[in-house]
Design a binder for these strands. Structure first.
Lengths: 208, 208
DNA sequence: GTCTATACATAGATAGAC
DNA sequence: GTCTATCTATGTATAGAC
């Protein structure tokens, strides 16, 4: 077991279930920290969130955090990656639908389904991007990458619908969602999201 | 002059030009602080901005800030008010245009004209709202009020165009702007804003 | 590997000289 | 009214016992 520790930046929990069984306290602490960070950063924002907040949410002692992450920034980066993975899984599932317009509408439905959470805390991706863009470290590029993948996926769907202006339509759709998420959050009104979502569904139908 | 100080929460500079002439150093420090705060908060965000940053930008000694504002929150609130005033002035000017659709398109043009600044720092109103919504103090309500006035103005224009779904359209337009501002900022690409702005202008034309 | 104690830096806020 | 010095709190990060 000791020979595994040569690379400190690649902690034990990457080797799946095995370590989760061998350790008495349910392991995967690194993943737990990253997962908790996703949630807490969404709720509180980056600057307001302390390492203690994340450690508490992950049920890990504060001082222990630095065994898994050298800095707060690295923990945030891991959270962004975890969030990116989550989004990718979602897109993969939507990919099972046959028609591209059905995929887009299913995406919209998913967003609408989260409208109460959005009213409380905004879009997880959007609020993170907004906040990280005010910083000089490279974290703003990390979240931009995640958003870029989402946008590219939307563009692919429009392209599959035979639209030559797929990029422009993708920006329009994604911007509408991001914008209404911001308004929903600012006015604490989930109905805004539901109404605008329905309008966007009709818009997608009108394109075919 | 001393009898004016009974209410400390209503500082001297509210009484216009007079004090600006009598004081050697060009006065209106309270306004200067609030104005500088608007700019710095837009560039750096609320949490990352220190009172020292604002004081420096306003060319006022740090310790002096507390003569004009009891807390950082009060300074931020003053900045929100100043920003709201600025927006109101802009809307008043747009009101001179005869046709409501021209007013809306002029608003869009104004936003597009700011696309480089938006790519750097995002929409001043939107980024502020996003960040303040993560806080428990009442500042999120203050910025919501400002955004509410803007949204109401847009709705009035659609209503003047004879649309019964003015509210829905206002949310759609404003959300599109806020969303594309976020994308423009995240991807550091002013062209996104220009393209989507042009699309929205065509959309407004199509409504008449 | 885990956890406590603590060093270190920074920012908000206050006291009080001028 | 203006400005400096400083108190106090908090948060990141490290040292080192276990």
């Amino acid at each position: 077991m000791t020979d595994l520790e040569r690379d400190h930046s690649e902690p034990p929990d990457c080797l799946s279930i095995v370590s989760q069984v061998t350790n008495s306290t349910r392991a995967g602490k690194r993943e737990r920290l990253a997962g908790a960070a996703v949630r807490v950063l969404h709720e509180q924002g980056v600057e307001k969130t302390t390492l203690a907040d994340i450690a508490r949410a992950a049920d890990v002692p504060v001082g222990n955090v630095y065994y898994y992450f050298k800095t707060k920034d690295q923990l945030i980066e891991a959270a962004i990656e975890a969030h990116g993975h989550h989004l990718q899984t979602m897109l993969d599932e939507l990919g099972r639908l046959a028609e591209p317009q059905d995929r887009l509408k299913a995406l919209l439905r998913g967003w609408i389904g989260e409208r109460d959470l959005t009213a409380q805390y905004g879009c997880p991706t959007g609020t993170l991007a907004s906040e990280l863009d005010k910083r000089d470290d490279g974290l703003d590029r990390a979240i931009a990458k995640v958003m870029g993948r989402l946008l590219a996926w939307v563009e692919e769907q429009f392209a599959a619908m035979g639209r030559t202006d797929a990029k422009e339509l993708a920006v329009a759709l994604f911007a509408s969602y991001q914008g209404v998420a911001l308004l929903t959050n600012t006015f604490r009104d989930p109905d805004l999201m539901a109404t605008e979502g329905a309008r966007l569904e009709r818009w997608i139908d009108s394109l075919t």
